[in-house]
Amino acid sequence: MKTGIRVKRIPGILVAIGLTLGLLSACATTAPEKVPTVVPTGQGTVVFLEKYEFKPPPQGWIMMKNLEGGDFELGFMRFEKGDFPSQTTFIYDDQPYGSSQDLEKRSDYYCTKFLFNSGIDLEIKKRERLTINGREALAIYMEGQNQITKEKAKSKVYLVKKGSRIISFVCTQWRPLSASFSQEPFDHFEAFVRSFKFVKKDFYESFEEELKKIGL
């Protein structure tokens, strides 16, 4: 069911908002929202919709926001030099594939679904336990290719425990079979993840509080 821009195949309308860093730093937004989309903090980070603070990638990356409220919360993408498909996308997703609240079990399921529709034959290169911003996490490194479409992909996924839920950060780089992967986009992804902060309680934290208020 997931189609579209090639981090996850995303259904429905996905709107890429072409905000470059120049626009970010100018605190500009084209979306008719009451809350400004991004606000620079003056310390190299921005606050997104008054919800998340993070270090954005440099100029040349396009910011993406899913207006349907579905498959991911926010992300960035960049088309790169070279034949199709030469692009890198990274996202923050508060509802990654699967339902298990256990990191290992969730990752097993996640990897069976990830890039499923792309036809890429992904191989898990490495999985490692770590902490991300003080939270228990699992990093998954994947690479794969499709000999028919002559393209390949390299992904790094962080599944992160947040309360009773699991959230994710995902970076995927696409290249033609004949081209090489590049590290630089992954460095921007790493900076994004390591700087990512929750400015206020997320939906589920607020919802838990509401449930407790009525004794559930």
Binding site: P11, G12, E68, G69, G70, Q95, F207, E210, L211
Partner: peptide
């Protein structure tokens, strides 16, 4: 596609 956050809020 179901909007689970909207559904949860409605169920509440």
């Amino acid at each position: 596609s179901p909007d689970v956050k909207e559904i949860l809020s409605f169920l509440l």
